[in-house]
Design a protein around this nucleic acid. Structure first.
Lengths: 241, 241
DNA sequence: TAGCCAAGTTGATCCAGATCAAAGAGGTTC
DNA sequence: GAACCTCTTTGATCTGGATCAACTTGGCTA
């Protein structure tokens, strides 16, 4: 319901393929070039979101899936108390909105953590296309399956571990996802606050800060504000286990 | 005494449908009777599993999805350390195996917690059928979407809560799922051990035991071994928030 | 029916991480 | 550049739940 005016401006793109990474990132299997361009034609691009803008809010009608072009989106829900619970961070090349397909209503809030551009894949049209493209249906299932698996990994990460392990695994996970997109080594920028990290990992904000400090003291990482450099990747990996 | 529509439907239907609840439980939308029987024809039934039998193990080839007929299945993964992490409990009427679609390999172990019968839905055949049944594809997406949502709720349940809240929410969740299938009020049997519960909730086994005792002392529940009766549903609900 | 083993309970102690408090560091806005 | 605000760090204290240990109960087998 409450979507800001600027978000409503939609721009249709013909040669979306190049601009929008839907092809390889969202639906990565054996479709022909021609098939892929059919999918690309569905894509609706949106005005870039500024930091703090909502892509959607809890209760909004489900219009389609979103693929992040650049930037980062945080999704979070509210518990009965009104406590905020971060459910995920979505970086460039990743999809969100899969959780809304069933009820056709978004069950959580999605907010931009920095300047972010997304493209929208209207789900009804995607399903129509499924009929003429047998492979597309399978692709969609794979994307959803991967999302289920991803959430299971989060559960595994949170279960039975110390604060240090959580932080370490979080860093490694983020680094891996960053590296998949852009060719950058062991140095990158956090798009989320300590607050968000602590909420996501089920720790106190202060604990997150302290753990970062400890890792820095051990010369395993270097953190300046939100910019991190992994100095000893092996040591970090070892701590994760 | 809310007998759901789906329960009534079940009674009307004979043959494969009746035995296997795939129709309304797994794929609950607008397919015609004829369509549904096409789906039912795919179903492969398996010999009942005894307690402790594995339905599949990590690394096994993905052959299809499974719908639990009766009984209960626990899924768990192993961390790098070899530590066991329970990722879910699957009761009668629920589906598992969705996490294997992407890699075509099961990423976790599935073991029966008691005598259990499942039916198998060969996924390749299901996808073939998708071509002739437009609605089926949508149904599948909905089932997967619901699974994604379910896992998000687990995250929300675990985040920022006390041991008591986790236990209470776990009880309520289980009760809800039990009640959906069988018409039973506030009394049911746990199919999993304290060990499994503690692992799933990220608590120590002893903590789980103590929390049960506390709730019993407060006369909110009554626990005899693995049989629980919720004496004060409102009080329990209140604790969950 | 006794004997055994796994599952569950209960008690005592300890510590990782929460909470409370306050000071520093960036980033905006005017 | 000053004022302001939010984010982050650091310190001190407290506590919920983990851990260690011993005991009880239930279920199974012979």
């Amino acid at each position: 319901m409450a979507t800001t005016g600027s978000n409503l401006k939609l721009i249709h793109v013909k040669t979306a393929c190049e601009a929008c990474r839907v092809r390889e990132l969202c639906l990565p299997t054996s479709l022909t070039e021609a098939d892929i361009s059919l999918v690309d034609e569905l894509v609706v691009r949106r005005e870039p979101l500024e930091k703090g803008d909502y892509l959607y809010r809890t209760g909004d009608d489900f219009r389609g899936l979103y693929a992040v072009q650049y930037g980062a989106i945080k999704t979070y829900g509210l518990t009965l108390q009104g406590r905020e619970q971060v459910t995920g961070f979505h970086l460039a090349g990743e999809v969100l909105g899969l959780d809304a397909i069933d009820q056709e209503v978004h069950p959580c809030n999605a907010i931009a953590l920095e300047k972010t551009e997304v493209c929208q894949l209207p789900f009804d049209k995607l399903e129509q296309l499924t009929q003429s493209l047998p492979g597309l249906s399978h692709n969609l299932s794979r994307v959803m399956s991967r999302e289920i698996l991803r959430e299971q990994h989060v559960l595994m990460m949170l279960g039975g571990t110390t604060a240090e392990q959580r932080i370490v695994r979080f860093i490694l996970n983020l680094q891996k996802r960053m590296a998949q997109r852009e060719i950058m080594g062991h140095s990158f920028r956090f798009c989320m606050s300590r607050q968000d990290i602590s909420n996501y990992l089920g720790l106190a904000l202060e604990t997150v800060s302290r753990q970062f400090t400890h890792l820095q003291e051990k010369q395993i990482i270097d953190i300046q504000n939100r910019h991190i450099t992994i100095l000893q990747p092996e040591a970090l990996q070892k701590l994760a286990d």
